[in-house]
Amino acid sequence: EADPRLIESLSQMLSMGFSDEGGWLTRLLQTKNYDIGAALDTIQYSKHPPPL
């Protein structure tokens, strides 16, 4: 049985245009305790590393 928090967070992320191919988004949301903001921060950080 999927956690209702996961279903809600995942559906919101999917509606933003993200995909869960391979389950990466599910794993990220689980790691971030279903916090969409924290997940988005992680995605943003990985796409744009800080300048040295």
Rank of each mutant, 00 (worst) to 15 (best):
I36D: 03
W24V: 08
Y45G: 15
Q30F: 05
A39F: 00
L40M: 13
S15P: 03
Q30K: 08
I7K: 11
W24L: 09
E21H: 07
L10G: 01
I43H: 05
S15G: 14
E1I: 07
A39C: 13
P50G: 13
P49F: 08
F18R: 02
Q12C: 09
M16L: 10
L6F: 10
Q12T: 14
Y34P: 03
L25F: 01
T31L: 11
E21F: 04
D3Y: 01
W24Y: 07
P4C: 09
P49K: 14
L28D: 07
L14D: 08
L40K: 08
L6Y: 10
K47S: 12
P51L: 10
K32G: 04
D20T: 00
L25E: 04
E21R: 07
R27H: 07
K32V: 12
P50Q: 13
Q30N: 07
Y34W: 02
M13C: 05
D35V: 03
G37N: 08
P49E: 14
P51I: 12
L25Y: 06
R5N: 08
P4H: 07
I7G: 10
L28K: 01
I36V: 15
S46G: 13
P51D: 15
L10R: 09
Q44D: 12
A38Q: 08
L29D: 03
M13V: 03
Y34K: 04
S9V: 10
G17W: 00
F18Q: 02
P4K: 13
G17R: 00
E1K: 15
G23I: 00
Q12G: 04
P49H: 13
G17F: 01
L29P: 03
D20S: 01
Q44V: 08
A38R: 11
A39V: 14
I36F: 02
T26R: 07
S11E: 11
M16C: 02
P50S: 11
L40C: 06
G17A: 01
I43D: 03
L10E: 03
N33I: 00
Q44I: 07
T31M: 13
I7H: 09
Q30M: 09
Y45H: 15
G23M: 04
L10I: 06
G37S: 15
E21P: 00
T31N: 06
Y34A: 06
Q12A: 08
M16W: 07
G37M: 09
L10M: 10
D35T: 00
T42Q: 11
S11A: 13
D3P: 06
P51E: 13
P49V: 11
L29T: 02
Y34T: 03
S9G: 10
Y45V: 15
A2W: 07
A38L: 11
L29G: 02
T31K: 11
S9Q: 05
S46C: 11
G23W: 00
I43W: 02
Y45M: 14
S19R: 12
E1A: 09
L29Y: 00
L52R: 09
S46Y: 14
G23Y: 00
A38I: 01
E21N: 09
P50H: 11
D35Q: 01
S11H: 06
G17S: 01
D35S: 08
G23A: 05
D41P: 03
M13N: 04
G17L: 00
E8R: 13
L14F: 11
L14E: 12
K47Y: 10
Q44A: 10
K32S: 11
T42S: 14
N33H: 12
L40V: 10
L28T: 08
L10S: 02
P50K: 14
D35K: 09
T26W: 00
M13L: 10
H48F: 13
S19K: 11
L40Q: 05
K32I: 08
L6T: 05
F18Y: 15
I43V: 10
T26A: 06
F18V: 05
R5P: 05
P4F: 04
D35L: 01
E1F: 04
Q44M: 09
L25R: 02
G23N: 03
K32D: 04
D41Y: 06
I7A: 13
L6H: 05
A39P: 01
S19T: 15
I43F: 06
Q30H: 05
L10K: 08
S46Q: 14
I36H: 06
F18I: 02
E1D: 03
E8W: 07
L10W: 00
Y34R: 03
S9L: 07
L28N: 05
H48A: 14
L28P: 04
T42H: 15
P51A: 12
P50M: 12
D3N: 07
Q12M: 10
D35W: 00
P49I: 14
S15A: 13
T26F: 00
S19L: 07
L52V: 15
D3I: 02
L10V: 06
D35F: 03
S9C: 13
M13W: 00
S9F: 05
Q30G: 05
L10A: 00
E1L: 04
I43T: 05
A2V: 15
I7E: 11
L52C: 15
H48I: 15
S9A: 12
T31P: 02
L29R: 01
I7F: 12
G37H: 14
G22N: 12
T42F: 13
P49Q: 14
R5I: 03
Y45I: 15
I7C: 08
L14Y: 06
L40T: 07
Q44P: 14
L52W: 11
S11G: 15
Q30I: 11
E8A: 11
S15V: 06
A2D: 09
D41F: 04
I43M: 12
S9M: 05
P51H: 14
Q12L: 10
D35C: 04
P49G: 13
D20K: 00
A2H: 04
D41V: 03
H48E: 12
S11T: 12
A38Y: 01
G17E: 00
P49R: 11
D35H: 06
E21A: 07
I43P: 04
M16R: 11
H48Y: 14
P50D: 12
E8Q: 11
A38H: 08
Y45W: 12
G37P: 11
G37F: 13
I7S: 12
G22T: 06
E21C: 06
R5T: 06
Q30V: 12
A38N: 04
H48R: 14
L40S: 01
D35I: 00
L6D: 03
G37L: 09
G37I: 05
L40W: 06
Q30C: 09
P50N: 13
R5Y: 06
P51V: 09
S9N: 06
L25C: 07
G17H: 00
H48W: 12
W24P: 04
S46H: 12
R5G: 07
L28R: 03
N33C: 05
R5K: 13
L28M: 07
E1V: 04
D35M: 01
Y34G: 05
N33F: 01
L29C: 01
R27I: 07
N33E: 10
L28V: 08
L28A: 04
R27S: 12
I43R: 02
Y45D: 15
S15Q: 15
T26I: 04
K32R: 07
P51F: 10
G37E: 14
D41I: 05
E8G: 06
T42R: 06
W24C: 12
D20Y: 00
S46E: 14
Y45L: 10
P4Y: 06
D3Q: 03
E21T: 11
I7Y: 09
P50R: 13
F18L: 07
D3E: 06
M13T: 01
D35A: 01
S11M: 08
A39L: 02
Q44R: 14
S46F: 05
